[in-house]
Design a protein around this nucleic acid. Structure first.
Lengths: 199, 199, 199, 199
DNA sequence: TATGAATGAGCATTCATTCAT
DNA sequence: CATGAATGAATGCTCATTCAT
């Protein structure tokens, strides 16, 4: 009788092992040999489940981002907040995480670095999806605010800019090693002062 | 008497050769041997003028950024414009350049990629300086606008955010390969609608 | 099923090729590329069997020393000799070898040179082992001599010194390019005149 | 009027600068460029006073050894001692020095390392001279001891061996990183018990 | 007599991917 | 299905010495 192997499970095992190793030592130090050893499969098998090393890294990124998004969704709806608070929370979540997320942050930073020096169409696609997620979130908050009469109509024209802002602050955090919390808070509060409907 | 050599000139020659090669094939494919050959000096001499390869790349970056800044400064003051127009021009300059600047953009993108995967204190320092330049520009425009009674006082609390926005849009341009022109225009116009003093 | 390779054999093959090359041109001129070519494997494979180049050299040293020790052991027990004769033979073996052993001597000399300019803990360990071998030999001869009533009891306090002497004469042979045979013979004979029990 | 330069003085200056640098960072890290800078002369000039870098190192070694010998001579005659004490002192001086001499010891060790991997006839010559110095010292002590009736006649046949011993213990100190004090003391005391005339 | 600019050979090591078994 | 042995390209940096001025 042939051994039935759960292909999907094996793929997950490899991704899991890779995730572990990446969190430990970073993407650049990840070797296929070590992934194979940690996952308990042979080097050759890796290539039955993934195209190449980049493909593995990519899968791990996907898993982490998804998890990250779930985490964000879980926390963001916890309480009743004003739109201002929700957006502030969003920025806080992305720019001020600590602990395990710091490591993941480094992972994401490394991913972006690779991203900028590669031309993978797949990555572009994935980036668009992530962007859409964030976009949807900001959009829904703003639209909700408008619907509630909390924000002025024109607020919706700021959505793309707010999204860009978030990435921009991330960029400064990374390249200038500075804390950006007070900066983005001042910015957002000022924006909301301008777009909140005066009662 | 010893041969008198214009050290600064030679350094410039080497940097120039490197610039050429980087523009042609990118930072990662740059080899010291080729730089030496192109600059018409020996490999050994390279190291009389630069600490190491990274140092060369860094110098070329510096030269390009400086040139870029000069170009920007020259164009931005060409006409009398409103603050809105100046800021729009600024974003346009950074995000919509074409021709040679597109290639330089790739160079800058590669630099940022390296930046994100290195921990060079020198790079951080340099990034801070570039940041300061851009900051000064936006600041002066906004402050001028406020002084002229064109903008409301609170506008100055948006400066950091505007700067972040610019980098964020650059980020999307790079990672999503999309045109961001209409996005940032809508955003900026909306912002200025909010902060311009109604007459 | 995967190809089964005799790892130990391959390691030996590489070491053998290295030995050949070292004997031919010395340690310093040994290149990994040449080792690979001579051993008939790829450069990459070398590193499946050895940590690094030093590791290869070290293994070759080990093999040679072992062989040298075996040779010594084989010869030293050939006949029934007095302790004096055994020790003299020992010194003779180490200090007066010719032919292939001269080349190996150069190898050993080069090894010692590297030894003196490195701080490898592994080398120290290995040196201790070699030292122990020689020590054991001298010890057993002397103790046997004492047991047989051939030597006085105090002879055993000379063991460390005799061992040092041997290395010292080697040192002079190397640094002064002089023949030390008559010197060490005179010394040893005098010592034995003093410690042999007069009958 | 031509500038009169004291050639010998300049040579000394260069040697002095080299000595400083060698004591600081070792022979291998000594660069001619740095010597030139420290000595306040041009790189080219160095070669007016020395054949090559090795020649410089060699001169510095000579200076140090001479100084070392003077130091030894000064201390060894300080008191009235028995031959046994003198020889013990000699070994102690060579094998147990501390402080500044530790650094010089490293220098000497480095020199020996170079010695073993070079074939310079000049070095051989110099080594012979050093050997002769040490030889003379041991000889004079032993002969004096014999003349005084302190030692038996045959003692003089141990001279070469004692000299070899000293180098041998040095060798073990270097290659096994062990303290050799108790070893050489036990050895020497045993020897002297054997060769001192019983009264 | 002094300068200091220029030279350029030489080499260990990593690791993603393949494919014979 | 699985294995794991084998591949091999690719590159920065040092520094003693020379010699044109």
């Amino acid at each position: 009788m042939a051994i039935i192997v759960d292909k999907a499970q094996k793929r997950r095992d490899i991704a899991l092992a890779s995730n572990e190793l990446i969190l430990e030592k970073g993407i650049k130090k990840l070797t296929v040999a070590e992934v194979a050893k940690t996952a308990g499969v042979s080097k050759g098998s890796i290539y039955d489940y993934f195209q190449n090393k980049e493909d593995i890294v990519f899968e791990v990124i996907r898993i982490n981002i998804e998890e990250y998004h779930n985490e964000l969704m879980a926390k963001i709806n916890e309480e009743n907040k004003s739109t201002r608070q929700k957006i502030l929370f969003l920025f806080d979540f992305v720019l001020n995480e600590e602990g395990i997320f710091d490591i993941k942050h480094n992972f994401y930073k490394e991913y972006v670095s690779i991203n900028l020096s590669s031309d993978s169409q797949e990555m572009v696609q994935f980036n668009l999806e992530c962007s859409k997620f964030f976009n949807g979130l900001v959009s829904s908050f703003i639209e909700e605010g408008i619907a509630k009469g909390e924000l002025v109509e024109k607020s919706r024209d700021l959505i793309q800019g707010l999204k860009a802002c978030e990435k921009g602050f991330l960029f400064f955090k990374w390249t200038e090693k500075k804390e950006v919390a007070s900066d983005f808070r001042k910015f957002l509060n000022t924006i909301f002062d301008l777009i909140e409907v005066k009662k």
